[in-house]
């Protein structure tokens, strides 16, 4: 892919996504099989102590996965993990980024650890995670 050898610090993942709408959440409810009403039914969300519905964490991780596979062939991803740092609200415009945090070798395979983040338009971190990829 790249002509030069990958190095720690290289920013390889960067993608911005359109604002999350109620429609997005409704579609993702069906597309993901996650029918938890807290993401689509404002009455349920309020009864659970939230001011409104909010995004499925896995929708946000899905966007981060898409940003990752834009940069790295899917067959080269060995693992992918995230911590959900904050609730992602309606209207969030997400930016996913990732850079090489470490070069390593496992079982004779050269790999890189990619540090990943997803932030909203206010710069608040929603997801922080990492992926291990084969080089």
């Amino acid at each position: 892919m790249s002509k030069t050898a990958p190095a720690v610090g290289d920013r390889i993942v960067h993608k911005e996504f359109p604002a999350i709408t109620r429609h997005t959440l409704a579609l993702y409810c069906g597309a993901s099989g996650d029918h938890n009403p807290i993401h689509v039914d404002i009455d349920f969300a309020k009864a659970s102590g939230f001011p409104d519905v909010f995004s499925h964490g896995m929708l946000v991780m899905g966007y981060l996965g898409q940003a990752l596979t834009d940069a790295v062939a899917p067959g080269k991803i060995r693992s992918f993990s995230t911590r959900f740092a904050a609730i992602t609200q309606l209207g969030a415009q997400l930016t996913c980024e990732g850079h090489i945090a470490e070069l390593l070798e496992t079982g004779g395979e050269r790999r890189a650890r990619i540090a990943l983040t997803t932030k909203d338009q206010h710069g608040e971190t929603k997801l922080a995670g990492e992926a291990i990829i084969a080089l």
Partner: peptide, 17 residues
């Protein structure tokens, strides 16, 4: 109660397509 859960972390380790 479903209304009281949040997703804290998620991980995937891939061994084959």
């Amino acid at each position: 109660d479903l209304g009281k859960v949040l997703h804290g972390e998620q991980s995937f380790a891939y061994h084959a397509p």
